[in-house]
Design a protein around this nucleic acid. Structure first.
Lengths: 217, 217, 217, 217
DNA sequence: AATGAATGAGTATTCATTCAT
DNA sequence: TATGAATGAATACTCATTCAT
């Protein structure tokens, strides 16, 4: 009702640690019971603080989930695109680069499969999360699209934007299916198929080194 | 999901119609407000019956959602595989058959995008739905896998099961992104990319007719 | 959040009785603990029903207080103006009629002094109650004003509206001070003073009979 | 209202100023949001100090409201009775003196109508405030009563105490209705009626000068 | 078969007050 | 003296489910 509710922005070491404890506890709770099964009281208890303290750091349980997910996605995103150019400089082929992305993506998704489930469900339930996920995904495909454009002469495809999105979709869904659960087929066969499909699709020659494009011409 | 109470199995015409009314009302409610925003009272009201009647036909709101989704998926599944063989007999190429699947899938997913969202969220929230979705998806990939095996000599790929799943994944996610959301790229470009990717991946020659395999040998 | 909350309008005998029980319990609670000290749970408990039942009959505690007060004011209002004309026909003087009003007002205010306190506080706290009280008071003064106009030739005063309001104010406050508590002076002396003040103010001759004005002229 | 903790009685200039700042902030908060809508944190924030500091100066929010109201009433009370004798010495009539009181009362009540509302509501809600208001009102009527006794030979009325209270009641309520609300009749007509009613009631000749009573006899 | 009144555990959130720093 | 982080009891309100009629 009143607008004097200020959310605590921790500067002190103790406060920062308390906020972290809350986020860790929240992650555990969300992972175990889902969004609707989790409540502020439980999170606070898990973190060893009072409900009041929870509400001092976060406006509500949606806010804390948001912050948790945000932090994770930032980590994932960074980890994927960071090493790509280095790989290429090492003379990796298209197929190898794709394989590397699969490996990184796999690791990222397996950081916390439980949380991943919650995150995935939220984008279908909540408008804010939907929007956030869309923006996030958009960012990823844009990066991928740009990445593809830097090597356009090695590519089969011409519509880079569409390709980036379709490939990202295939990656997403396959990662999720592996991370959240039911692998009807062993993970390696699945990843091999994924690598094969996207490599064949994207590259003129998936097994040629990607770097030093000038030399090939 | 246990059936501790006797749930009415309608034999009478009036009962069947009442059950249908309940399911229609439920679909509308779930679509508009999501699973957690919907309650039994609202569904009953929408169907013009009492809460008691609702509970006479369904154990709880999960049960009615289950039944609704089940019905839809059956329809979708049938619509996709029904016409495939006919297409092939008409001399369609691999690319054309894939294109046909995309068209059917698109229609199916756009039958009720709202409900689709609920369905998608539920598989991340609820164990029963997760299991169901897995089985369903498994069924689809199995069918696809079998379908691929009937034309193995025309295919690039060798691991049919893995291919079926990866292709199904790419389809799923792309359909969903179009159905539930903000397409960053126009739908047609996306679908073309999807068709291109999967055709190139699956077939030795995506533009050769699939039928009469004996002739080619 | 959802708008399917329908407030139960009792038609059955049992329901009507339940609603009455709730209102009686609420009156007791409000009287004893004031508005902010009372909660739905307590009212329900007092009425021997569950909280849910409370909320089935009333949207919130404000609503039930409103209904209680409304009922009381209707009773008060009716009791005051009902017998006035009869008194006049019996040849009562202005002073006697005023005395009669004081008597009726006193009875009305003493129906439930505790509730009166709550009612009075609410008009200063809550906008809806303020508005309601204003309307109600307006109604009373309007009636009084009309009543005065029927005997304008017997009156000293010329601005009937202003007189009606000032007289009503004097009545109100004196009634309240007697009903809610601290009589620094005995009630009868106070009422006599009130009668004296308003009679002298309103009438040319407070001790002449009010009826049959034609005869006097 | 018990003082279990040591409440700071400011002697230092800085402390006095801090207390004033708190009271000013509290007035603003109470006026804007009422008693129940206001909380210690908000007041402290408004005063630019910490909650702890608030509790160092006041036991709770009731205490600060008490102090604020007390200060205001003292001011009002003084302003009303201060100039009365002077007016009389200037040869004012009874009606003119009453008119002067109305003017002063009006000004006093309009100092902070918002706070007035809070004050009025509190006397119906809280026992301590009720008692305080009673005492305060008692004081006013006692003063008025004494004032009247100094001019008993000019008065119609004989029961000075009762008259003082009834007149005070009429004043109170009319002032409040003007200050807090929707005047159904213009303020001037209302005040004129009030002056007329009380003058006619109190004085033998409302239009004769009050001073030098000996000369008249 | 159908109704819908009744239940009450459960949930999110606030805020007066304390107390270690 | 002053701070403001921390506490946790308390509150309004909802909704899945039952069961007497």
């Amino acid at each position: 009702m009143t607008e004097q509710n200020t959310i605590r922005v921790p500067q002190q070491t103790r406060s920062i640690e308390k906020k972290k404890r809350l986020m860790d506890a929240a992650m555990a709770e969300f992972g175990a019971k889902g969004f609707h099964g989790t409540n502020a009281k439980g999170i606070a208890k898990g973190a060893g603080v009072s409900v009041g303290t929870f509400y001092a750091y976060f406006t509500d349980k949606k806010a804390i989930l948001f912050e948790i997910i945000n932090q994770h996605l930032i980590e994932i995103d960074q980890s994927i695109f960071k090493t790509l150019t280095r790989k290429m400089d090492e003379g990796a082929t298209g197929r190898e680069v794709i394989g590397h992305i699969v490996k990184l993506g796999h690791e990222a998704h397996h950081h916390s499969p439980e949380l991943l489930r919650v995150m995935l469900s939220m984008q279908y339930i909540d408008e804010d999360f939907k929007e956030y996920a869309a923006t996030e995904f958009n960012g990823t495909t844009t990066k991928l699209s740009k990445f593809l454009k830097t090597m356009s002469d090695r590519l089969r495809i011409t519509d880079m934007e569409a390709a980036a999105q379709v490939v990202a979709n295939a990656f997403e869904e396959t990662m999720h299916s592996v991370a959240t659960g039911q692998p009807h087929v062993e993970q390696d066969r699945l990843y091999n198929a994924l690598i094969d499909m996207t490599s064949i699709y994207l590259f003129k020659d998936p097994d040629a080194p990607l770097s030093h494009p000038s030399q090939d011409n």
